[in-house]
Computed example of a mutant assay.
Amino acid sequence: METLEIILKDLGLGYKLLFITCVAVAGFIASKLIRFFMTRVLKKSATKLNVDPTNYNFLKNAVSFLIFITVVIIIFYSIPELKSVGISLLASAGIFAAILGFASQQAFSNIISGIFIVIFKPFRVGDYIKIGDLNFGNVEDITLRHTVIRNPENRRVIIPNSVISSETILNSTISDPKICSFLEIGISYSSSIDLASLIMQEEAMSHPNFMDNRTEEEIKDNLHPVCVRVIQLADSSVVLRAYIWAENSGNAFVMKCDLFKSIKERFDREGVEIPFPHRTVYVKQNQ
């Protein structure tokens, strides 16, 4: 840069104007090329995420702005007559730039996180996700700043992208929407495990949301569509877990709620006891 400054210092006004024109044209061409390739990449990402590609126009405009600033800095720094003016302008704008940069730090973090979501695609619009332990629902919109989630109460949860990047994301529909729901029920030690397992299997298979997820090999081996296992011998109960498949998480939730009711009613009719805590109280009388 110093060698270029020495050369331009000895040249006439016409050559300096020519240099300014060349730098400006080069910056303009670079901006157009970068915007062209970014548009192609962002359109593909927007199609996969099922979002409006105009949401990312800000990113392309920001790149063009950075190229413009770089061109101006090169011109002012390379021409001696403009260098002193440029240094004065930069010095006067330094404090303002520092304040602005500090104020926009969180916003910039959200934008970078939004870019990562576009590139790595941990979820898309329409996916059912869970972020952390509290927020879950269907993704309605993804922007560079935030993500909008519609929860089961039909409320919109707006989460900054920087928060999403630091949380664990549970995506139920990213590649395979079907889900295996765990249905756990405890029975008393005096009740029949085989009878309880049979009731759970029959009630699960009779539900309209039930899905037979067995492979061809498992069907040939006559494996039951609903697997029931004893998972725990607790203090007052034998805990059974039924593995029941559904097409998606919504169907699985409804099916699980319905099965708790129907299985409890079948247990009552057929003598399978669901234990509950008992407490014996001894009252000591004063002599």
Rank of each mutant, 00 (worst) to 15 (best):
E216P: 02
S206N: 14
Q105H: 15
I67C: 01
Y128W: 07
I193D: 05
I87K: 13
K220D: 08
R266G: 03
E218P: 00
L134A: 06
Q106D: 11
K43H: 08
I131F: 10
N154R: 07
L198Y: 14
C257V: 11
V163W: 10
T39V: 12
K60Q: 10
P277Q: 05
D10L: 12
R150F: 01
A30V: 14
V41N: 12
E2W: 12
F68G: 07
G126L: 04
D141I: 11
F58E: 10
L195G: 03
A30C: 11
S191W: 06
V281C: 05
G101D: 12
V157P: 01
V157S: 08
L66V: 09
R150W: 00
V148P: 06
T70R: 09
I219G: 01
P275K: 06
R40L: 14
K16V: 01
G137R: 01
T280G: 04
N251I: 02
D235C: 06
F37V: 15
F76V: 00
F260K: 15
L134R: 14
E217K: 09
G271I: 04
A46F: 01
F123L: 05
L17V: 03
S166V: 14
I73F: 10
L100C: 15
N222I: 05
N55G: 14
M255Q: 10
T39C: 12
S88V: 15
R229H: 09
P152W: 00
S262D: 06
D212F: 04
I169Y: 02
K178F: 07
T147Y: 07
K284M: 15
N61E: 11
N213P: 05
F182Q: 09
L33R: 02
S190T: 15
V283G: 08
R150V: 06
N135T: 15
Y243H: 02
A91D: 08
R269P: 01
V125W: 03
I193G: 01
F96A: 14
H278R: 13
S172V: 02
D268P: 04
K43Y: 09
V254Y: 11
D133E: 14
F253L: 07
P80W: 04
L198H: 08
P177S: 13
G101H: 15
K48R: 13
R40Y: 09
F182I: 08
N154K: 06
E167R: 14
I179W: 01
I129F: 05
N209E: 09
S88P: 08
S172D: 02
P152G: 06
M205Q: 04
N138R: 05
Y189E: 05
E273T: 10
R35I: 11
P277M: 12
V272S: 09
E216R: 05
A246Y: 05
R266D: 15
Q232H: 13
K284E: 09
V125E: 03
N55W: 08
P122G: 04
G86E: 00
F260M: 11
Q105E: 08
G126A: 00
C180G: 11
C180P: 00
A97F: 12
I142D: 00
I69A: 12
F28T: 15
S188M: 09
V254A: 08
L4H: 00
N251Y: 02
P160S: 12
